[in-house]
Write a protein that binds this DNA or RNA. Structure first.
Lengths: 284, 284
DNA sequence: AGTTGTATCTCAATATTTGAGACATTGTTT
DNA sequence: AAACAATGTCTCAAATATTGAGATACAACT
């Protein structure tokens, strides 16, 4: 089986014909395969056969790993039915959230914001080129948004994402915008994004106010208002947003909401040691 | 290194001197070690040295595994500071919750119950000899309970746990009760549990009503009312409970709450295909 | 019943992991 | 500031732990 272990056999050729579905790190094949198996189950490939196929690994081997994963509680097995994600993952996921002080600190503030506005409130951070949702308070209006904690979304087309972009050098904006514009559009619910010149102009305006708008760019019928959260070194480390259905979000309300959201974001920032001053990078 | 792989070398001797901190399954050392490393980080052992010690594994090896885990997003690494649980675990944890139809189905009902009572509502299932919390709606009274999704608690001393016990053969009750009575008592907040005779008598009464009480047995100052959820085959598959601080939970209110909680539990049961009838196991 | 797919186990071959150690880098102490 | 301690990173030969083909036992579906 061709896997690359030999550091000599790797001149310039970049293409790795070994594992199509999986990159190979080094000296931990078994571990990586096991983790990949978990992700298969998470993605809906719940039978041994399918997993074996996706991992390019004999059933025998996959079966052995799945057994261990079940024994440790990472997976759950319903014989002759399939595998499901196990309770240990729930446990670890929750603990992972706890380990981020950000979530705990921000909670009261986003709860207050949710109560005050009655809308869905999100907390998110940058992860790679995407937003990663760390917390969500559902709307009290009964309308459920399809977002959820642990979800990833594009930066350029979401309220939270744009707020996070305010903390990046504007030179990165273009690439992020284009990534969304080019994207294959998973669910087909995303409208054609704004053309770059207009988008840039808007972002420049947001940068001045330090809060952002999202007008159905990510999902038709949903508008939101967002603002960045900064830490002690004035770096943007997170963002919050208030989202609601269009009928609840007329232009005037969004304008009112801007300062409110920013104030909530600032409150969280202060908890992180941030001190309001007009000097540094992001704020006039 | 002595690990057991040979099925012949295993007459009657049960003791396995191999890995003190870790049981060994079969043919997946690397995977199990990697998972164990994750759990180390979850438990607060966040430095390479400590993890290596707890796993009884050379630093070199641990380091290699940690690298892979970081690459896959299961851990987060702050150089020269330590390791933290990574975003992938949050993602998987949330997906694990979603994969349980129970959580989705129960949500509306426990939300309604929370709104109606104003108290903290929990949803839990049996996992081993413990309750495993699957969902929680926080109280609107501002009092936060220290419970959380993903947590485990003893069966015999919690409201949810006792409700779950109603679905077990009463012959198991004694052992579960004693386990709590004997327990080293982690945080020291748990009062001495009821003596067995009294406990049994109470449980017998609960069984008749099909809802249970918990009078500060798990945590001083917290009382709760619980009821079991059944599936199509009339098996107890989950339980819900309403919990609050003693001042909000006088005896009379608990008596009123009983039927309310049971009704909510029944509503969830119906979603699972359960049909109310007086014939089978648990219900008069 | 017959058929298909999964669950489970064995065992020889060897690819994969292992782990000691050297070195580079960072943070902490004196 | 310099010495020290701890962590990050890499190499390589040894051998253990993993692999995977295959055979069997069950379960489910038609």
């Amino acid at each position: 089986m061709p896997t690359r272990t030999d550091p000599m056999t790797q001149p310039v050729d970049a293409i790795d014909p070994a594992t199509p579905e999986r990159r190979q790190a080094a000296g931990t094949q078994t571990l990586l395969r096991g983790l990949a198996a978990i992700e298969c189950v998470a993605t809906g490939t719940t039978e041994v056969k399918g997993i074996a196929a996706r991992l390019n690994t004999p059933r025998s081997t996959v079966h052995r790993m799945l057994n261990s994963l079940v024994a440790e509680g990472y997976l759950h097995h319903v014989p002759y039915k399939g595998y499901l994600l196990g309770p240990k993952l729930i446990e670890l996921g929750m603990r992972a959230l706890e380990q981020r002080p950000l979530v705990a600190l921000a909670r009261p503030h986003i709860e207050a914001l949710a109560q005050r506005t009655g809308d869905t409130v999100h907390l998110g951070v940058v992860d790679g080129d995407e937003v990663f949702y760390l917390d969500k308070i559902p709307s009290t209006r009964g309308l459920e948004m399809r977002s959820r904690v642990g979800l990833r979304m594009p930066l350029a087309s979401t309220g939270i994402g744009k707020a996070l972009m305010l903390g990046m050098p504007p030179s990165r904006w273009r690439a992020l915008h284009d990534a969304v514009a080019t994207a294959p559009d998973t669910v087909g619910g995303r409208p054609g994004p704004l053309p770059w010149p207009k988008y840039e102009k808007l972002m420049a305006g947001f940068l001045r106010r330090d809060w952002v708008l999202d007008l159905e760019e990510n999902e038709i019928g949903v508008r939101c208002v967002g603002a960045p959260v900064r830490d002690i070194s004035n770096q943007v480390v997170a963002a919050i947003s208030v989202a609601s259905a269009v009928p609840y979000m007329p232009d005037e309300r969004m304008a009112e909401l801007g300062p409110v959201v920013r104030a909530a974001a600032d409150a969280i920032s202060k908890e992180l040691g941030w001190k309001q001053d007009g000097s540094a990078t992001g704020r006039p």
